[in-house]
Design a binder for these strands. Structure first.
Length: 411
RNA sequence: GGAGAGGUGCCGGAGUGGCCGAACGGGCCGGUUUUGAAAACCGGUGACCUUCACGGGUCCGUGGGUUCGAAUCCCACCCUCUCCGCCA
């Protein structure tokens, strides 16, 4: 099944014309540089009057070299630009499909509720409880913005702190990272080129508001060569996330499902270049998230994301979709991605094998732990009572201080 | 934001046009000595790309430029430190 990675399908087969041209040019350039070096070595033990001819030759060679170098760098940047758009071949086990409708459900957990009363959606629940104010959020920052107030804001914090505690217990190290990052981070993690329209940019400082802490988290060791004994690196970050959601007008415009700014606890792992290890790790990371959702007593399903719904660099992806009563369906809350060495190559993120030998590219993986306010949707909607109260899962009590959100308007 | 100083190998730190991939010191590795260790002494010790190999190339913050030749000269940028201002 993994023959695609085992060497049959080496870069050899993907080598483009540009690559061959570049190599030829580089070879030529290096030869001429060697010549030039030799010439200037000779120069110093030659009498001044004998230098003239050599100087002239040097000048001419320099012009030629310059031309060649310019050509080489032109070809190289064209090549690199092309390389950046190359997608990662999916794992052969990924189901074929053109879009998310063809994702394959692997399993479900929990009971989908059947309300015996007229159930409300999270927007009216939140408004009635006085913990959610969308109109004023829109007033402050436009559509897809919101305000969480009082217990709403507290609930969000509780979910996030629970997520951090959950992952700390799994041995992940909490990091506080820059979420305003440079172009190299965006490109290195695979968001650029391609994701520019979805990203808030700060042109004055040439920085970008990343849509997930996966970006800084994965880029932490970019350009470095780690020791194999330092691997795997397992970290989480709690950060705000920003997404422009361009081109989604009208799509999920209602409520807290798709918003421009949200909070997320993200898990990220950097490991050795070992696909079996990587596959196993992805399973673990998925399990961490499932346990978390289970603790929140939210029914969910796990989906094996099909080829057509896979991101450029993703080799395999499993989504967790929570049951959201107001949608009458599942909504994505978690996304566990495996990248093989896709991101590591772009980030130049390597490690020195402990057995010796050349540095190798790491493998990287990431998964959501908790994203809010999206997670507040099932939490509020599933916990609602006929009188408009909302009962929260026990697991949040120590973080929230209570589990009952009382409807002030009830009789 | 204003003024100044600086960015060199694992670390400290020399080096102001060819003899510099880079002195010297520390560290690290190996050896001698020692019952063992420490100390002392001797030797070794950068990374990456390319090549079966020989070899070749790149790298002294980054990117340009000058020159036959740049760690060294020029320009721009980035970063760090000190002082002042401001600030969560």
């Amino acid at each position: 099944m993994r023959a695609i990675w085992s060497g049959d399908c080496k870069l050899e087969n993907l080598k483009s014309e540009a690559d061959a041209t570049y190599r030829r040019l580089l070879c030529d350039v290096e030869e001429r540089r060697a010549e030039a070096k030799r010439r200037s070595q000779e120069m110093k033990d030659i009498a001044a009057d004998e230098r003239v001819a050599l100087l002239e030759e040097g000048r001419r060679a320099k012009q030629e070299l310059k031309g060649l170098e310019a050509e080489a760098s032109k070809v190289q940047s064209a090549l690199q630009a092309g390389l950046l758009t190359l997608p990662m071949p999916p794992d052969p086990e990924v189901p074929e499909g053109s879009d998310d409708s063809q994702n394959v459900e692997l399993r479900t957990w929990g009971e989908v509720p059947d309300f015996s009363f007229d159930a409300k959606d999270h927007v009216s629940l939140g408004a009635d409880l006085g913990i959610l104010d969308i109109p004023r959020g829109v007033k402050l920052a436009g559509s897809r913005n919101y305000l969480l107030l009082g217990d709403g804001a507290r609930l969000e914090q509780a979910v996030l702190r629970f997520a951090v505690a959950h992952m700390t217990a799994k041995g992940f190290d909490l990091a506080s990272v820059p979420i305003l990052v440079n172009h190299a981070c965006m490109e290195g993690t695979g968001y650029f080129p391609g994701g520019e329209e979805q990203t808030y940019a700060v042109p004055k400082d040439d920085l970008f508001l990343s849509g997930t802490s996966e970006v800084p988290l994965t880029a932490i060791h970019s350009g470095e060569t780690l020791e194999e004994s330092d691997l795997p690196v397992r970290r989480i970050a709690l950060s705000p996330c920003f997404r422009r959601e361009a081109g989604t007008y009208g799509k999920e415009a209602h409520g807290l499902y798709r918003v421009h700014q949200f909070w997320k606890v993200e898990q990220m792992v950097i490991g050795p270049n070992d696909e079996d290890w990587s596959i196993e790790e992805q399973g673990k990371m998925l399990a961490h998230a499932e346990e978390f959702v289970q603790a929140l007593e939210i029914p969910y399903r796990v989906v094996d994301v099909c080829t057509g719904d896979l991101g450029q660099g993703q080799v395999r992806k499993f989504d967790i979709e929570a049951w959201m009563p107001s949608r009458g369906s599942w909504g994505e809350t978690h996304s566990a991605s495996r990248f093989h060495d896709f991101q590591a190559r772009r980030l130049n993120l390597r490690y020195k094998p402990s057995g010796g030998g050349k540095p190798r590219f790491c493998h990287t993986l990431n998964n959501t732990v908790a994203a809010t306010p999206r997670l507040l949707i099932p939490l509020l909607e599933l916990g609602q009572q006929s009188n408009g109260d909302v009962v929260l899962p026990e697991a949040l009590e120590s973080f929230m201080g209570k589990v009952l959100l009382e409807n002030p308007a009830k009789g």
